[in-house]
Computed example of a mutant assay.
Amino acid sequence: MVDKVPMTQGGFVNLQEELRWRQQEERPRIIEAIAEARAHGDLSENAEYHAAKEAQSHNEGRIAELEDLIARAEVIDLSKMSGSKIKFGAKVKLVDEDTEEEKTYQIVGDQEADVKAGRISISSPIARALIGKEVGDSIEVNAPGGSKAYEILAIHWG
C-alpha cells in the first residue's frame, strides 16, 4: 500500500514547479558543466568535474524524490474545509499562556512547512497537539526549549 502525502494545492503546484525547473533547466545546465569540465583534460584531479558530478547526483536524487511525492500527493481542497475541530489545512490562532504572545499557524503537509511563514507540518509536535481540539482548549507542547502551553483563540478555514 502506498502512503498518501497530504498537501495543499499551493504546495502541490510548488513541487510541480520545482520538478519542472530541475528537469528542464538545472539538468541541462549540469550536463553542460560536466561536458565543459571533461574538456579540461585529466578527470582524476579535476575539481570542476567532480563538483558537477556531485551536483548531478544531488539533482537526480531530488527529481526522484519530487516524482515520488507528486505521485503520492493527496491534494486537499482547503475551500471545502470547515468545522469547529482543528484538522489539516486549518489556520489556528494561539496565545502563549506564559508570554501572552499571539501566533497564527496553518497546518500543512511536511513539504510545505515554513515556520517563518506561519506554516507548520502536520507531523510537527505542535500540529499533533492541535489536531481535534477546538476554540478555548489548551494544549501543552514539548518543544526543544521546554514545555509550552497555548490556548486556542480562533480557527479559520481557506
Rank of each mutant, 00 (worst) to 15 (best):
P125A: 13
P28T: 03
R62Q: 10
Q111Y: 10
V75S: 07
K87H: 11
D68P: 00
M1R: 05
E18H: 00
D98R: 12
P28N: 12
A90M: 05
I155P: 09
E65C: 00
W21P: 00
A47Q: 12
Q56M: 15
S84H: 10
S44M: 09
R20W: 03
M81G: 06
G10L: 06
E74R: 14
A127F: 06
Q23R: 15
V115T: 02
V135P: 02
L78S: 04
A51N: 07
A71Q: 04
E36I: 05
A51P: 00
A64N: 09
E100S: 13
E36H: 09
L43T: 11
W21L: 04
E100N: 14
K148V: 15
E97Q: 11
I122C: 01
K53A: 12
V108E: 09
G136F: 04
G136N: 06
E102K: 15
V13N: 13
I155W: 03
D110S: 12
I76K: 05
I63D: 07
K133W: 07
A149C: 00
A37V: 04
A113T: 12
E25F: 13
E45F: 08
A127M: 03
G146R: 04
G145C: 00
V92N: 10
A149G: 01
I70T: 06
I107M: 01
I63F: 13
E48V: 01
D96M: 03
L43K: 09
A35Y: 09
Y49T: 10
D137V: 08
D98T: 08
I139L: 10
A52Q: 03
G10S: 02
I131T: 07
S123F: 02
G146T: 08
R119V: 07
N14P: 00
G146W: 03
Q56S: 12
E26V: 14
E100P: 00
V5L: 13
V92E: 11
E54D: 11
P125V: 15
E102Q: 02
F12I: 02
K85Y: 05
E67N: 06
R119N: 13
E26I: 14
Q9P: 00
A73P: 02
L94N: 08
A33W: 10
R62I: 10
R72S: 14
S82R: 01
G83M: 05
A37N: 06
P125H: 08
A127N: 01
I30V: 13
E151S: 14
Q9R: 14
A55T: 08
A33K: 14
S124A: 09
I63E: 12
S123T: 15
E134W: 03
L15M: 15
L130Y: 11
V115F: 04
L94I: 04
D96Y: 12
A154I: 01
G118L: 05
G89L: 11
K4I: 06
A51R: 09
R29F: 14
